[in-house]
């Protein structure tokens, strides 16, 4: 068996040492630092991305909260404006209503006074006509030349009062 040929040992040991030392140097100086650097970079990158994602989420939450608050504020403001407008309208309509009713009352009053005036005039005319008729009736029928004017007036008034 060639495995037990001692003459072959020195060359195998020498080349084993040479190959293995070369391999060790290549691994420890070049290959392994490069791999560990890549692995570390990847770990850092993942960590950084996670941090960033968390920060972004927090920011999004803040924006959402601000948005909700502004919506609530705007709603309150809108309600306020609607209330103000309806108040204003109610006030205006009340004022107009009051003005209108005052004007109507005024007109009614004026009409009433006109009516009263007309009635008084009518009454006065009726009396003078009645006096006149009474005077003429008494002179023509009875023949009394002179009728006491005062007596006549009182009689007419009394007669009118009786019919009122």
């Amino acid at each position: 068996m060639p495995q037990f040929d001692i003459n072959l040992y020195p060359s195998q040991i020498i080349w084993l040492v040479v190959s293995f030392v070369l391999l060790y140097l290549a691994m420890s100086r070049i290959a392994l630092p490069r791999i560990s650097e890549v692995l570390e970079k990847r770990r850092d990158c993942i960590e950084r991305d996670l941090d960033k994602a968390e920060a972004l989420k927090k920011e999004a939450d803040e924006v959402l909260a601000a948005y909700e608050q502004s919506i609530a504020e705007t709603k309150a403001k809108a309600l306020d404006i609607v209330k103000q407008a309806s108040d204003q309208l109610a006030k205006e309509s009340a004022a107009r209503h009051a003005k209108l009713s005052a004007a109507l009352v005024e007109q009614v009053k004026a009409a009433e006074s006109t009516i009263a005036q007309a009635k008084a005039n009518a009454l006065a005319d009726i009396r003078s006509i009645a006096e006149d008729i009474t005077h003429q009736v008494t002179t023509k029928l009875i023949g009394i030349k002179r009728v006491d004017k005062k007596q006549l007036q009182d009689a007419v008034v009394a007669a009118m009062r009786e019919h009122e």
């Binding site: 060359s11 195998q12 080349w15 084993l16 040479v18 190959s19 290549a26 290959a31 490069r34």
Partner: peptide, 26 residues
């Protein structure tokens, strides 16, 4: 006798292939 033998060639090839594998792939 430190001759380069078929065994030495295999060892050196192993070293070279591992080094290439671990560096070229990275």
């Amino acid at each position: 006798n430190a001759s380069l033998t078929n065994s030495s060639v295999a060892m050196l090839a192993t070293t070279i292939i591992i080094t290439l594998f671990m560096t070229w792939s990275m």
